[in-house]
């Protein structure tokens, strides 16, 4: 699927069959058609990437400057040094990174498992209060969380007295708090997707003697892999960046997540350490990007390769 260079396309232009729509044929497209079909998409892509990334160039520039401010200067990359990245090693940055990865992975796995199960129930079973239940799940998440900082503290204080691992300063407790939000908008996302999987498949499997759990695990989940990947990613990113609840729950520095730690470096603008912060922010964006890069094949490759479209 190489992008045709102008020369090769021009050479091949004469023999191209206008009616052909197959993938293999596009290398012989005319330049104009290449542009209307694909080329403009590259233009959009470049523009979109520039739009998405240009403000972050500031961040990158600050992370490479030894002693700078975030937005004080429009002269980018005036001095370039890796000092800030090296200095991260003297902080607890990598501990925070490890904590964050553990918490975010656990939360996103838990969210996918619980959310998908709930979505399956809502999609496949008919029971009293189904519609209201679905709506209620979504609406509960809209509650303004302005007192969460007191409520969560009190809750974990009480829980911690009974079950120490669910008390303050426990990563498990934080994961549990995050999982409290597992049923919500993500359930809805999956619910919509589950509905697109034809019921005839379940029926057929059930006639063959499969139980509902076998249908769920062996048929449905495979077919909805794209949305599971999307939800996993959304949950991972949300957990990765969350610091309001994390800073209440995790009280000791060695337990902090990246968001809490990074925020601490700049929470007071006067004492802000932008160099360290931006270097940390650049590195902490990498796992998210890597995860997305990895999950893309599930997101876009899932259904088309599946058996549904037979």
């Amino acid at each position: 699927m190489a992008i045709p260079t102008p020369a090769t396309t021009a050479a091949a232009a004469g023999s191209s069959a206008p009616s052909s729509r197959t993938l293999t044929d596009h290398r012989r497209m005319r330049p104009r058609r290449w542009f209307t079909e694909l080329g403009w998409r590259h233009v959009v892509g470049v523009v979109a990437v520039v739009y998405a990334a240009f403000p972050l160039v500031y961040v990158l520039s600050a992370s490479l400057s030894e002693n700078g401010t975030l937005t004080g200067s429009n002269t980018l990359f005036a001095d370039v040094s890796g000092a800030n990245y090296a200095e991260l090693g003297t902080t607890m940055f990598w501990t925070w990174m490890a904590n964050t990865l553990v918490i975010a992975v656990a939360t996103s796995v838990g969210t996918v498992l619980m959310g998908a199960a709930a979505a399956y129930a809502f999609s496949r079973f008919r029971f009293a209060g189904r519609r209201i239940g679905l709506t209620a799940l979504l609406i509960v998440q809209m509650f303004p969380q302005m007192l969460a900082f007191v409520a969560i503290f009190l809750l974990l204080l009480g829980l911690g007295n009974v079950v120490p691992v669910l008390g303050l300063n426990s990563k498990i407790a934080l994961i549990a708090v995050y999982l409290g939000g597992a049923l919500g908008v993500n359930t809805f996302l999956m619910y919509g997707f589950f509905n697109t999987v034809p019921r005839e498949l379940d029926e057929a499997a059930k006639i063959d003697g499969a139980t509902h759990s076998q249908v769920y695990w062996t048929i449905i989940l495979r077919l909805v892999a794209p949305i599971l990947a999307v939800v996993a990613l959304l949950s991972f990113i949300a957990t990765f960046g969350e610091f309001i609840i994390a800073r209440i729950v995790l009280t000791s520095e060695s337990n902090w997540t990246l968001a809490v730690g990074l925020y601490g470096w700049v929470s007071s603008l006067r004492e802000a350490n932008w160099g360290l912060f931006t270097a940390g922010a650049v590195i902490s964006a990498l796992p998210v990007l890597a995860l997305f890069l990895y999950l893309q094949k599930y997101i876009v490759g899932g259904l088309t390769a599946g058996s549904v479209k037979g």
Binding site: T95, N99, A106, I172, S254
Partner: peptide
Amino acid sequence: LALGACSSG
């Protein structure tokens, strides 16, 4: 994961 969360800190 939870056990991991415990031990890694």
